[in-house]
Amino acid sequence: MTPTRRALVTTLALTAALTTTPTAQAADTPQHPWYFDTYRIEDVWEHTTGEGITVAVIDSGVDPTLPELQGQVLDGTDLTASPQGAHADTDGHGTDMAALIAGTGEGSGIQGLAPGVKILPIRMTLGGVSLGGTERFGEGIIHAIESGAKVINISQGGTIPEDELSEAIALAARHDVLIFAGTGNEGERTNHLAAPASLPGVVGVGAVNSSGERSPYSTYGPQVSLAAPGDDVPGHCGDISGPACIRDEGGTSSATALASASAALIWAQHPDWTKNQVLRVMLNTAERPDDQRRDDYTGYGIVRPDRVVLDGEGDPGDPDSPPIFRDWEAELRPPATPSPTPEATPGPDAGANPAPDAEPAATSDDASPLPWLLGAGAAVLVAGSVGWLLWRRRA
C-alpha cells in the first residue's frame, strides 16, 4: 500500500471511530450500515433528509410495495421493448438502488441515506440487458429531466455510441441536473471504460470498502470523479422478496446510489445552489490525503456529505462555473464575443481533450484545491465489449 493510500485509509477509519458513540445503533445492519457512523447520518438528518429532491433511477424498475419504499416512489416510465410499467422489477437491482437512496427502514427493510427523497423509476434493463435498445437510453435521461429530477442515478453501463447519449447529457447540463454513473466492476479483469460514466457531463463513481480502500473490482481510470462505499452495503438476500441483509460486495452500483443520495442531502439543505455548486462542494470535501488532488482509483476522494451539512465545509463558488467538464460545458453555449485572434492549429498528436496541465489550477477561498476533471479518454469505449450491464456484485 502506498503512503498516500495508507493515509486515506487511516483518515477514513479514524473518522468512523471518532464519530461512533456508545448510544449509536449497532453497525452493519440493513438499518444501520457501517458508513452511517462515518457520515454522522443521524445528525445529518436533523438538518436534511433530501426532502424536496427527486432522484431518477434508470435501472430495472423499482418495486414500491416494499415496506421501506412505500410512499417513496413516483410513477416513472417503462422504456423497455415490452413495457410492464416502471414499478415492475423482476431483477431487483433497481429496487435495491432506490432503497439505498431513499429507503425508510420500515419493516426491517433497507434504510437509505436520504429518506426524504422521492424516487422516479425509469425502467430500461432486465438481468443486465437493455430491453429497449441502447438508443433509448437517452430517452430515459430526457424523461428524468422533463419530470423534474435534480439527480439522475445510473448504476450500470456498457458499450453505447457516444452520440446516442451525448445530446441527452448535454440537455441535463443545460437544465441544471446532475448525473452520477457507476464506473464498473472490471477493475480485476479488463478494466473497460464504459458509458455513460466515461462520457463528459457524467460524474463517474468508484467503490471503496469500509477501510477506505478502493474495492479491487472497481474500474479505474480518468473517468473516476468520486468514490463511495460499495462493500458491506444493504441489499436483499436472494430476490427482493427476501429479507434485507448486508452484502459483502455491492459494486459500483451501490457506490453510485450513495453518491446520488449524498448530492440530494446537500441540495435539499441548499435548494438555491446550482448543480455546479453542489458538485463543487462534494469534490472539495471528499475524503483524500491533503497532498493529493485526485487519482484514477477514487477520483477526488470519498463522498462526505456530513462535512457540508454539519461542518459547513466547501465553498460553493460561482453558480455558473462548472467544477469539472468546464471545457465541455463551454462548448454547449455560444461564446459571448468572437475570439479576437484565430486559435492555433493543433499539432498532429493533439487530441480532443487538453493535457491535465493545460489549464490553470483554481483554489477555493480556504485554499483547498478545487479539482478540474478534463475528461481525458472520456469517450473511449473498448472494442469487443458487449451489452449493457448492471454493476452488480453479489457474494
Rank of each mutant, 00 (worst) to 15 (best):
G206K: 04
L100S: 03
Q292W: 04
C237R: 14
A355T: 13
P161F: 00
T337C: 10
L258M: 15
G351D: 12
Y35W: 13
R247Q: 14
V9W: 08
P121Q: 13
A86N: 06
P115S: 10
A268K: 03
S254R: 14
A207P: 06
M97T: 02
T65L: 11
I266Y: 05
D75I: 11
M282I: 01
D291E: 10
T20R: 14
T2W: 06
M282W: 02
V9D: 11
A114S: 14
N185A: 07
E313Q: 15
V386D: 12
H236G: 00
Q277M: 00
I119M: 13
I240P: 03
A263R: 05
S262G: 13
G148Y: 09
G148K: 06
R393K: 12
R5H: 15
D365M: 00
A13Q: 14
Y35I: 00
L389A: 04
G250K: 08
E46L: 12
P354K: 11
D239M: 13
P229V: 11
N284Y: 00
I101E: 06
T80D: 05
N353R: 15
P3C: 02
A259G: 06
P348V: 07
T298L: 03
Y35F: 15
T159K: 08
F36G: 05
R280I: 00
R280Y: 01
A194H: 10
R123L: 05
P33W: 05
I145E: 08
T274I: 02
T4V: 12
I53D: 12
F325N: 14
A13F: 01
W267V: 02
A378R: 09
T23A: 09
R393Q: 15
G109Q: 07
D365A: 11
D296F: 12
A367N: 07
R326H: 13
L120Q: 09
E162G: 04
S225I: 04
V386A: 11
R393Y: 13
S211T: 08
G71C: 12
A24Q: 09
T21Y: 01
E106T: 12
G238Q: 06
A350H: 11
G76A: 08
L18I: 01
A114G: 09
C245F: 11
T80V: 07
A173I: 08
Y39K: 00
T341P: 00
R304F: 03
L374S: 11
T219E: 11
A376I: 04
S211M: 09
A244W: 10
A257R: 09
L165V: 03
D272W: 00
V151E: 02
T190Y: 08
V309Y: 10
A376L: 13
T134P: 00
D311K: 13
E42T: 08
T95W: 06
A286W: 01
T90C: 01
N191I: 02
L265E: 04
G242R: 09
D290W: 05
A263Q: 07
H175F: 01
R280N: 11
V203A: 01
P334V: 00
V129F: 12
A344G: 03
P334Y: 02
L178N: 04
A26D: 02
L14S: 13
S253G: 15
L310A: 04
E106K: 15
V382W: 06
A13W: 03
E249W: 14
T219M: 11
E249R: 15
W328N: 05
P229K: 10
L120R: 10
P33Q: 09
